[in-house]
Design a protein around this nucleic acid. Structure first.
Length: 467
RNA sequence: GCUCCCUUCGUCUAGAGGCCUAGGACAUUGCCCUCUCAAGGCAAGUACACGAGUUCGAAUCUCGUAGGGAGCGCCA
C-alpha cells in the first residue's frame, strides 16, 4: 500500500467530544490512529470536538486527556501542546468556520433554513408514515429575499443548510471496506451551522481534518454512511479529501453495541479496577485488527506490528476473558518496583515477588497479606480434609521439627520426612494448608521464609491441638 | 420504510479459487512437570450463517435468503 509507505505524509488524529470519559471503542480508534502515525513516523493529532456547548464539559476534556496519557497514547499536536494547526479546540475555531460558511453561502452551496424543530419533526413523521426516508424536505431551499426578511422579522434565527448537489455519485475508497459508492439524491440537505452560530459535526469535523492535513481518518463503522456528506462538503469548498477507514464497532459479549449493561465500558472503570495500560492496549490491539504476532507487546513495540490493511470490517466483541489474559501477561513482566507501586501499600519486595504469580488484580494480593500478617479465614472443604488426613500427630511432629529448622522449609521437610515417613504432596500439602489455610498459593519455601516464625509455629501447633 | 455495512471454532482472528482433511491465540478438558497455583510442554474437542449459481475445483467470485448493525438529528 503506497499510502502507508510514504511515511512523512501520514497524519492521523483522534477527535473526541468531551461529553463523557474515554470509552473503550474510542480508546481503540485512538490506539489505531496513534499506531498508524507512529508506524509511519508521521504525526498524531488530538482535536477536541466541543462545539456542542450544552454537553461539552471542561472536566471531560481533562479526563479524556488524562485517560489517553494513562494509556500511553501521547499526541504530537493538541490543545495543551499547540502545533501548526492550532487551535485544537473546535470551540476556538469559530473564525475559521465563519470564513468557510461565508464562502459556501456566497457560492450558493448553502442556504438559510428557518424551519423550527417542530416543523422538522412533523415533516419527518409524515415522510416516515409515507414509507419514505425521513429527509429534509427542502422547504427553505428556494426562499426568496422577501420570504427571508419576513421570517427574520418574525424573529426566526436561521440555521445554515448545505445544498446537496442533485444527481451526483460520490465515490471513495475506504481503507477497510474498499470501494464505496453513494447517490447524492439519497441524502437530504443537512445543517452545517446551528441556529446559535456554531458549526455542526458534519461540517467542522470534515473541514478540520482537511485543514489540519489529516491523511487518514480512522473511525467507527457508524460513520460510513456519513462520509459522502462530508466528502460533498469538502468538494464544494475545494478542500482536500482525507482518506477514511471505518473500523467495525466494538460490541459486548452478546453482540449488542457496548453499553453499561455489559459492565465496565470506559477506560477509567478498568483503571479503577486495577487493570494495567499495557493489558488494555494489548487487548484492544487485537480487536478488529490482526497483527503478525500473537505475543504480548510493550506499547513502544506495537507500531511496527500494526497493520492498517488488517483492520476488521466485522464488529468485534469485547470479552474480558481476553483482557484477563493480557493482564496476567503484563503482571508477569512488571519489575518488582512497578509491581510494588501497583499493589499500592508499600509491600516489601520479597512479598511482591512471592505473590506475583498469584495476582491478576491488586485485590488478589489482599488475601496474601492476611495470610502473612493477619488471621487465617475459615478453611474450605478440601483444606479441611487435607488437615484431617494428616492427623494431629503430623502437626505435633511438624511443630517440633520447626523448633529445629526454623523457617527453612528444606530443613523442616527433611526432619519431618525422617520422622513421619511422608514425602511429596503428602508431606507438603498439610504444611501448606496449615500455614496458609489454602491448598493453592505461592511457593511454600519463600512464603515460609517471609512469615514470622512465631506465626508459623503457632499455626502448626494449632492443628496438633485442634484436629 | 429507504440507503449502507457485517456474518470462519465459545471468544479474538488467519485465510484474497487449488498450499484448507480450514491455521494461530484466548478460554475449556486431559496428560506431563510439580508441595499447590502460575509458568512451561504435549494432546483433545469445537467454526467457513443458509440456499442457489460460476468453475475441473469456492471459506475465498456472483445472486438471493436469514440474522445482526449503522445512517437517514440544530448528537458526535
Amino acid at each position: 500500500m503506497s499510502i502507508i509507505k510514504d511515511s512523512s505524509a501520514v497524519t492521523t488524529r483522534f477527535a473526541p467530544s468531551p461529553t463523557g470519559s474515554l470509552h473503550l471503542g474510542n480508546a481503540r480508534t485512538a490506539l489505531f490512529s496513534s499506531l498508524w502515525a507512529r508506524k509511519a513516523g508521521g504525526r498524531f493529532i488530538l482535536r477536541i470536538e466541543d462545539t456542542d456547548v450544552e454537553r461539552s464539559q471542561l472536566r471531560f476534556r481533562d479526563e479524556l486527556m488524562a485517560d489517553l496519557r494513562w494509556l500511553g497514547l501521547e499526541w504530537d499536536e493538541g490543545p495543551d501542546k499547540g502545533g501548526a494547526s492550532a487551535p485544537y479546540l473546535q470551540a476556538e475555531r469559530g473564525g475559521f468556520y465563519r470564513t468557510l460558511f461565508k464562502q459556501i453561502e456566497v457560492n450558493g452551496q448553502a442556504y438559510s433554513c428557518y424551519c423550527t424543530a417542530d416543523d422538522l419533526e412533523l415533516s419527518r413523521k409524515v415522510q416516515r408514515m409515507a414509507g419514505k426516508p425521513p429527509r429534509y424536505a427542502g422547504t427553505c431551499r428556494q426562499l426568496t429575499v422577501v420570504q427571508r426578511t419576513e421570517r427574520e422579522a418574525r424573529g426566526l434565527r436561521p440555521s445554515l443548510r448545505f445544498a446537496v448537489p442533485i444527481g451526483q455519485t460520490i465515490e471513495f475508497t475506504d481503507v477497510v471496506h474498499g470501494a464505496q459508492r453513494f447517490l447524492s439524491d439519497d441524502i437530504g440537505d443537512f445543517i452545517i451551522r446551528r441556529e446559535d452560530g456554531t458549526a455542526s459535526f458534519f461540517f467542522c469535523n470534515a473541514v478540520d481534518d482537511s485543514a489540519m492535513g489529516v491523511t487518514h481518518v480512522l473511525r467507527g463503522d457508524d460513520h460510513l454512511t456519513n462520509t459522502p456528506r462530508q466528502l460533498m462538503l469538502l468538494d464544494a469548498l475545494g478542500m482536500r479529501r482525507p482518506g477514511y477507514g471505518h473500523v467495525g464497532l466494538l460490541v459486548g459479549t452478546d453482540g449488542a453495541p457496548l453499553s453499561k449493561r455489559h459492565g465496565s465500558t470506559s477506560v477509567l472503570e478498568f483503571r479503577d479496577r486495577g487493570f494495567l495500560p499495557a493489558a488494555i492496549l494489548n487487548h484492544l490491539f487485537r480487536l478488529g485488527h490482526s497483527s503478525d504476532t500473537d505475543g504480548w507487546l510493550a506499547a513502544e513495540n506495537m507500531p511496527p506490528h500494526f497493520r492498517p490493511e488488517h483492520l476488521g470490517r466485522a464488529p468485534a466483541r469485547f470479552d474480558e476473558t481476553h483482557l484477563m489474559h493480557w493482564q496476567k501477561e503484563t503482571v508477569e513482566r512488571m519489575s518488582a518496583e512497578e509491581l510494588a507501586a501497583w499493589l499500592g501499600v508499600g509491600d516489601p519486595p520479597d512479598f511482591v515477588e512471592l505473590v506475583r504469580h498469584n495476582v491478576v488484580l491488586p485485590d488478589d494480593a489482599v488475601e496474601w497479606r492476611n495470610v502473612m500478617h493477619g488471621d487465617l479465614p475459615p478453611m474450605g472443604r478440601d483444606e479441611q480434609s487435607v488437615i484431617a488426613a494428616a492427623g494431629p500427630g503430623f502437626f505435633a511432629a511438624a511443630a517440633a521439627a520447626f523448633d529445629q529448622s526454623s523457617s527453612n522449609l528444606g530443613a523442616l521437610a527433611k526432619i519431618l520426612k525422617e520422622r513421619t515417613g511422608r514425602k511429596g504432596a503428602e508431606l507438603y500439602m498439610p504444611l501448606r494448608v496449615a500455614l496458609t489455610g489454602q491448598a493453592h498459593g505461592p511457593e511454600l519455601a519463600p512464603l515460609l521464609k517471609l512469615m514470622s516464625p512465631a506465626t508459623a509455629r503457632r499455626r502448626l501447633e494449632y492443628h496438633a491441638q485442634n484436629s
